[in-house]
Amino acid sequence: MLGDTGPGIGLNTLVVASGAGLLGAGGGVLGTFLLYRRRVMLADAAGHATLPGVVLAFLVGLALFGEGRVPVLLFSGAVLSAASAGLLVETYLRTRRLPEDAATASVLATFYGAGLVLLDYVQALPVGGQAGLERLLLGSAASMLRAEAELLAAGAFVLLVVLALSAKEFRLLCFDPGFADAHGWSSRRLDLLLTGLLLVQIALALPIVGLVLALALVATPPVIARLWVDRLSHMLGLAALVGGFGACAGVFLSALLPRLPTGATVVLVLAALLAASLGTAPRRGWWAVALRRRALRRRSASVGGKR
């Protein structure tokens, strides 16, 4: 394992941190598109819905190789499981009797419940390595395998490349899906691609951030960026920067200080950045709004004063 030597920054931590940084940047870009498509909570459903797939993949690994923790298998299990959750949400929505949030919430919780039952089953089996599964709930860079770190870095890099190549089409999708349709980019297919990339992102994030908090990597950076800039292209850049920085900083902090879980630390770094932005951002920050409101109150008092 990578972090066996205890707290401190070694070469291994650097590998994980650079992978996390790439993933954070990808999450920021992906999250910005999701924010515009109003589908951020899809990431929450995807995160929780990976659990049964991961546990099943663990069982498959055991059966095929006698070893449950095969990174590529676990990754594929996570993606497939989250994808089937997405299909179930679509099925629920087809009835037109359930609002999207209720459909998302119920699928998320159900898949997670199924995952817990499977997890209990695996733990009742007379084999080793199950502890590595529970770690997926909250993530831990320190206990990542070398192969997992490499998969993370490579996967995150590929994800970023795909995002960069398709950014133009996604921007179109965000601004005007109808226009995209009219010009030969099916908005449905683009949405599907976006969702697919999201599943990859979430599955890659599991070992470091955990399935409960994987959502934060796509949710928080775009909101921070939005407080500072208005244009989509600026938002994409800033969100990528913030996401990459937050993920790196979180990994380093949790490596340097004892008893600091990686996933939660990454999320808290991002939350702190958001809190600071909420206070001080130039136009939408709390301070700026308070000032403008005071001016307004004065003006209304003078207008109302003529009564």
């Binding site: 109003r38 951020v40 949030d101 959502l215 934060a216 949710a219 999320v267 808290l268």
Partner: peptide, 11 residues
């Protein structure tokens, strides 16, 4: 709302 929920929940 979904984005706001996501941020608050994880934080």
């Amino acid at each position: 709302p979904g984005a706001a929920i996501a941020v608050v929940l994880t934080s």
